[in-house]
């Protein structure tokens, strides 16, 4: 995990964009907290710089599932 964060840092992405959580099978509140924390972090860091305008690689996969409104 540290190595992955280091790889991100090397290319110039914030390592905070990646985090690992240990979530037990019955630990729903922890899952909710993890999602909330990552959302807050991503909001604080701003969108992934790769997504913007011209730099957007043409071959990116679209996360939105078909039919999903976004």
């Amino acid at each position: 995990m540290e190595y992955a964060q280091y790889l991100l840092e090397e290319v110039g992405l914030e390592p905070e964009r990646l985090e690992m959580y240990e979530i037990g099978a019955s630990d729903a509140p922890k899952w909710v907290a993890a999602v909330q924390e990552m959302t807050e972090r991503a909001q604080a860091l701003g969108p992934n710089p790769l997504k913007q305008g011209a730099s957007h690689p043409a071959d990116v996969l679209d996360f939105n599932q078909p039919g999903e409104e976004k």
Partner: peptide
């Protein structure tokens, strides 16, 4: 694979493809 991915990410961050 990792290096390729890193290079693509870094280039993308600089607005290059």
């Amino acid at each position: 694979g990792l290096l390729a991915s890193q290079l693509k990410l870094a280039a993308g961050l600089k607005g290059r493809r």
